[in-house]
C-alpha cells in the first residue's frame, strides 16, 4: 500500500470568466521512506501538487488517498517547511518551535521538552532565546525545520526550503538535512520537497518527479540511485541532472 496515492487529480483555480488549469490528471504514488523531489519550472503546479498531497488544497476532480483513505482535510501527520521561514517575529526560537505543538494536546512541560529536543537536533542549541531578527537566514530555516519536526510528522514537506538562502548557507543546510534524514533518531522517514533546482533534487532525493508547465503535468519520474553524501562533481550525478533537464526542455 502506498503512503500517498494521487489518483487522477485535476486542480483548477477559478478566474473571472474561466478557470485556470493548474494540475492536469496527476497520478503519483509515494511509498513510505521515500525522499521525493518535485521539480519543474514555475507554472508547473509543483507547489500546488505538494499542497494537494497534504490536504492543504482540495482537488477539483480526482482524489488523494493517505494510507488508502481519501484525504478530506489537512493531513495532521504532515508538516511543512516554508521558503519564507514563516516565523513569528515576537517569539523566540523556543517560542516559535513550541507554537507548532500548541494545537496538539501536549502539556506545556511536554511542549518545552519536545521543542528543546528538536532545537538541539537541528543544531540550534544555544539559540533558544534568540528572536528571528537576530538570526541569519540559515538559522531561521533551522527554526522552521525544528518546528516541523517537533510535531513528529509522518511526512515532512518542504516547499523550496533553500531558495531564499545564499549558495553557501543552502549548501550547508542541504547537507545537514540529508544527514538528519539518514539518522535513526530523525522522526520522519518520508520527505516531499519542491524545488526548481535539478541539482538540488539530485543531491538530496531518492526519487525525482519532473513536471512541465501550463498545465502542470508529470513528464518524468526517476529513482536516484546514488549513495549519500553525493558529490556534484561525480559523473553519475551529472548524468542524472542531464536526463532530468532533457525531460523538462
Amino acid at each position: 500500500m502506498p503512503l500517498i496515492k494521487v489518483d487522477h487529480v485535476v486542480k483548477e483555480f477559478p478566474r473571472e470568466h474561466s478557470s485556470l488549469l493548474v494540475l492536469d490528471d496527476i497520478n503519483v504514488e509515494v511509498q513510505d521512506g521515500e525522499f521525493v523531489a518535485l521539480v519543474g519550472p514555475s507554472g508547473s503546479g509543483k507547489s500546488t501538487l505538494l499542497r494537494t498531497m497534504t490536504g492543504l488544497i482540495m482537488p477539483t476532480r480526482g482524489q488523494v488517498l493517505y494510507k488508502d483513505k481519501p484525504l478530506r482535510d489537512v493531513n495532521l501527520e504532515s508538516a511543512m517547511v516554508f521558503q519564507s521561514f514563516a516565523l513569528l517575529p515576537w517569539l523566540t526560537v523556543q517560542g516559535n518551535v513550541e507554537l507548532g505543538l500548541e494545537a496538539r494536546s501536549i502539556s506545556p512541560e511536554g511542549r518545552k521538552k519536545k521543542a528543546e529536543f528538536y532545537i538541539e537536533q537541528v543544531g540550534l542549541a544555544g539559540f533558544e532565546e534568540a528572536y528571528p531578527r537576530e538570526l541569519s537566514g540559515g538559522m531561521k530555516q533551522r527554526v522552521g525545520l525544528a518546528r516541523a519536526l517537533a510535531i513528529e510528522p509522518k511526512i515532512l514537506c518542504m516547499d523550496e526550503p533553500f531558495s531564499a538562502l545564499d549558495a553557501l548557507t543552502a549548501a550547508n543546510l542541504r547537507e545537514e538535512v540529508i544527514r538528519l534524514w539518514s539518522e535513526e533518531t530523525f522522526p520522519v522517514d518520508t520527505v516531499l520537497m519542491v524545488t526548481h533546482l535539478i541539482e538540488e533534487a539530485v543531491a538530496m532525493a531518492s526519487r525525482v518527479i519532473v513536471m512541465s508547465a501550463h498545465p502542470g503535468k508529470i513528464v518524468g519520474d526517476i529513482k536516484i540511485d546514488l549513495p549519500y553524501p553525493r558529490n556534484k562533481m561525480d559523473e553519475q550525478f551529472n548524468q542524472y541532472c542531464d536526463s532530468l533537464f532533457a525531460m523538462i526542455t
Binding site: S136, G137, M139, A167, L168, T169
Partner: peptide, 11 residues
C-alpha cells in the same frame, strides 16, 4: 555567519 562558513567548507 556559521551556516555560511560551514557551507563554504562543504562546497
Amino acid at each position: 555567519g556559521v551556516s555560511k562558513i560551514v557551507g563554504l567548507l562543504e562546497i
